[in-house]
Amino acid sequence: MITADLIESVPGERIVLKEPWAALTAELKRRPSGPVAVFTGRRSVEANGAWAHLEAVLRAADRNAVRFSEIEAEPGVETVERMAALLQEVNPAAVIALGGGSVMDAAKAAYLTMQSGWKLEEHFGSDCYSRVYPEAAPDRVICIPTTSGTGSEATPYANIVDHRLGVKKLISERFIVPALALPIPAFTHSMPPAVTRATGCDALAHLIEGFLNVGADANSALANEWALTGIRLVVENLPAAIADGGNAAARNNMSMAATLGGMVIRFKSTGLPHLCSFSWFGRLEHGIAVAMLLPASWSYYLGNPKVAERTMRLADYFPGDEPRGVIASYRRFLDSVGVPGALKDCDGITPELLAATAASGSENRMKLELAPYPVPVSDSERILGGILKQAYLGEF
């Protein structure tokens, strides 16, 4: 199957689709003696059966588990620090993240913090630790995703909330790309329609934003192929997954699409939708926010002729005779899966929030400069303000 071949071709770690439990058992048996630290969410892994399956593997590998299950939906600095302290106390032979993107992000951040000896805050930024210690080889998390959206099982990213400052901060670090990822679609069947919609939209945004990032094409010879395959999978399967959570084929394909999205943004970063929604946690689901911000951002990107040309390669999935027609077709797809048409229709998204978002955009100079159509830092408030106003009104 071409999708499995594409996923298993990603360099730098093992993503296992076939016989994942056997692969995990073998991995744990080859590790040194000691317990396994397992990070989960609060309830979902019991409901979807994932915890029972993992317990069986741990018994087969003759491993004791130390479980931490108090990871909130938007993991905060305090939670990650507690996780790192537990790891320091336990000194595990392996660390497993069993859950959605929040669990995986928090586990990745905590394990790096424990092994580096640095404070968590010292890791916020891009490759902070690996630039100082390029020859270091810290152990990395084993990820078993139970949602289909973030792609965290394949990325060097961890998003952590700093509640003191009221912002979400990013760790981008090559040393936290998971060592082993085991996407098991059966665990996603219990996701309710709203979660399926939001996580599916997150995956779609990753795929499209990465594909449109024409300035990063040289980073990977395969990323655009991954993106096109993933976009097709989302368009063909997200409506069915929302309508019937037990649709195994749709769930399998959405799981693959999410992992492909993670692989894409590992090499070709997201753009303005992710920049603008970065600190909207607690107001609007992340996947819905980035999906809604994409049309206006995409329209801005058309100022780069290469993006306009790249856009037409998506006409097979979002039919249109010219670039703006493709964007309009993408928006119609969002309509078909129940995504609101305008930010003004979403509770918690206010003109005041958007003004603050536009004003703070200049703090992420790298994201502005690496956008498919770069945003001058000196003019970022005006440009971002215009994009956000269009998204608020449902225009693009």
Score class of each variant (00 low, 15 high):
Ile2Ala: 09
Ala4Lys: 14
Ala26Glu: 15
Ala26Tyr: 02
Glu46Ile: 13
Ala50Leu: 03
Leu54Met: 08
Asn64Tyr: 09
Arg67Thr: 14
Arg67Leu: 13
Glu70Val: 00
Ile71Lys: 10
Pro75Ser: 07
Ala85Trp: 02
Glu89Leu: 11
Asn91Lys: 15
Ser102Thr: 03
Met104Arg: 00
Ala106Gln: 03
Ala107Pro: 09
Gln115Phe: 10
Gly117Gln: 09
Leu120Tyr: 05
Glu122Met: 09
Ile142Ala: 07
Ile144Pro: 08
Pro145Asn: 09
Thr150Met: 08
Asn159Thr: 13
Lys168Tyr: 08
Lys168Cys: 09
Lys169Cys: 12
Ser172Arg: 12
Val177Ser: 00
His189Gly: 01
Val195Thr: 14
Gly215Arg: 15
Ala240His: 14
Asn252Cys: 07
Asn253Lys: 11
Met263Arg: 01
Val264Leu: 06
Gly271Gln: 04
His274Leu: 04
Ser279Thr: 14
Ile288Leu: 15
Ala296Asp: 01
Ser297Arg: 01
Tyr301Asp: 14
Tyr301Asn: 12
Asn304Phe: 05
Ala308Trp: 01
Thr311His: 10
Tyr317Leu: 12
Tyr317Phe: 15
Val326Arg: 04
Val326Ala: 02
Ala328Ser: 12
Gly338Ser: 10
Val339Asn: 08
Ala356Arg: 14
Thr357Ile: 09
Met366Gln: 11
Ala391Gln: 01
Glu395Ile: 12
